[in-house]
Design a protein around this nucleic acid. Sequence first.
DNA 1: TTGAAAGCGCTAACAC
DNA 2: GTGTTAGCGCTTTCAA
Lengths: 347, 347
Amino acid sequence: MTTMKDIATATGVSISTVSLVLNGRDAGRVNRLTAAQVRDTAQRLGYISNPLARSLRTGRTRILGFVSEHIATTPFAGGIILGAQEAAIALGYMLLTVNADNQRAEADSIAMLARYGVDGVLYAKMSNQYTDVPQALVDYPLVLVDATDKQGRFSSIEPDEFTIGLDATARLIAAGCRRIAYIGAPDTTFAQHGRFAGYRQALDNGNIQFDDRLVVNVDDDETALRAVSDLFDREHPDGFFCFNDARAWYVYECAARRGLIIGKDVSVIGVDNHQIFAQTLIPRLTTVELPHYEMGYWATMKLVSLIEGGVPDTLVMPQTTTPLPPLDATVPAQIHCALIEKASVRA
Amino acid sequence: MTTMKDIATATGVSISTVSLVLNGRDAGRVNRLTAAQVRDTAQRLGYISNPLARSLRTGRTRILGFVSEHIATTPFAGGIILGAQEAAIALGYMLLTVNADNQRAEADSIAMLARYGVDGVLYAKMSNQYTDVPQALVDYPLVLVDATDKQGRFSSIEPDEFTIGLDATARLIAAGCRRIAYIGAPDTTFAQHGRFAGYRQALDNGNIQFDDRLVVNVDDDETALRAVSDLFDREHPDGFFCFNDARAWYVYECAARRGLIIGKDVSVIGVDNHQIFAQTLIPRLTTVELPHYEMGYWATMKLVSLIEGGVPDTLVMPQTTTPLPPLDATVPAQIHCALIEKASVRA
DNA sequence: TTGAAAGCGCTAACAC
DNA sequence: GTGTTAGCGCTTTCAA
């Protein structure tokens, strides 16, 4: 393993000079030629810096903790991690992903982060909800991902639930639907409020009278299928906005049993919470993909800017979503979902 | 932050003594009383060891790299990570999960692992397949997860594909099925061979004549639905073994369109590769859950034993799978899938 | 049974 | 412009 010492002796300069050069702090302090030579031998010797040694000295580790329940058991957390990881790497940080499935795991994980001296923490939930940040984390720079701080102390990056409902419903209207059902979740579900409000707003915008007989808010269990089935036969909707993929599934099944083709006889838009539809290649459902990758990316940039006081503007979030295809009830598509940032009260 | 120095001064001993005690290397070298005092102050001062400093000194980091494509974009990788993480923590290691979605990401990730000086590497694939281990990794202690080393140089932990096919088919037979279809994948798919062989063996065992008209090996695209549909109408199978969840979906859809109830009119067992069925609460499919958690756990123990030369026997893999419920065509269930370990040739 | 001292690779204050 | 020096927190000889 090549160290700065090796480079120093090989080049015939001191270690400090090497350190200065290799950290890019040589502007006007080190001779241009010397600097070039140092960089040259570093290259030649295949030097890679030792972040442990640096951290020991500086007290900063350039490691970010990623704390998440269901980190691993649910698929969609993955997109967040991926985005966070890529942003972290782009900014010269590492991501230490730890599990917080339960109280004990969370405590263990947080202890681990403390041992490794992370510079900041991303705290992610498996779906947007009011969240209590563990006491052991409140002293770290911290950003919530897909969650809202109950006490408003920390910033968070979340999907724009209202816009999700608005866009999806508007799209159904634009596709010619007039009797649009809302298959929602219980009121205790955080995202339900925003999405439902968006749904109603879109109806208003489209001059369609809201009809509460077209709304069912179902739990994710056996009763759901019956409720959706009843709605089907009672109201004969021509379009469905589904709170998530599990609910879209019920619509899918009901339609199949009635010989109806989705995307032809009825239009269905579901929020693809678990990315199930994206993975099974069901070709007929229109889905709203939650911008997990972008959430992770943005949250990480936010966190690093908290830590360092600003990140370079040159770092823009890569576009991973495709532009909207033309509107047509028979054409499935993915809808890009917007993000919002809630600033922390104390920020 | 409390350091060993703090403890030393507070107790009135030297740092070396503190180090000895706190690392449990004080048997017969340090006075029992002194040792107790040291432990006491450590406790009182809330000492947590600094792994960075230790690593700098020892040259070993107790960090394991977890390299995976689709680390984040597919759900089922999650189970592996979770298992690996818990095993790692139990053994006093950290897991550094990095992404290898593409060549560039993989190269970057591996460079990252090198910088952080990982003690070993887990190399995981998104589904069992012949795999080339990147040249940059061959010098690390390394274990493959859900993958087979093309050159037989490394050990691997994989699902027992043959047993999956055998058990699932045997179960269908035990449930009374006689015309059992095999909805498989193209021959290029690694797991296809073992599962198909298991299917045939189970038929043999049950004295059922193999009939190749009951077999379709489909790609995961639009043609698949038609192929399954044809099979349905042509052969009228009473049972289905599906290579994975995507294929089970096609059967599910075909059945729905024919008014057939799964678990009543036809029996379907699918390998729940993407854990889709586990998550959508479809109540009627029997699934074979791939033991992702166990794979991750076992692979990590294997890796650590490679690094350290043996792990304590006391560390057993936690049981996460439920025992088999009684056989009955109308009762959905999960089947526990066995693991196998392929020893490396050079081991 | 204990302590002094060297050093892992690096940074940063300060001298020259 | 460049080098000297003192550590970051820890482990590990070696001497006492």
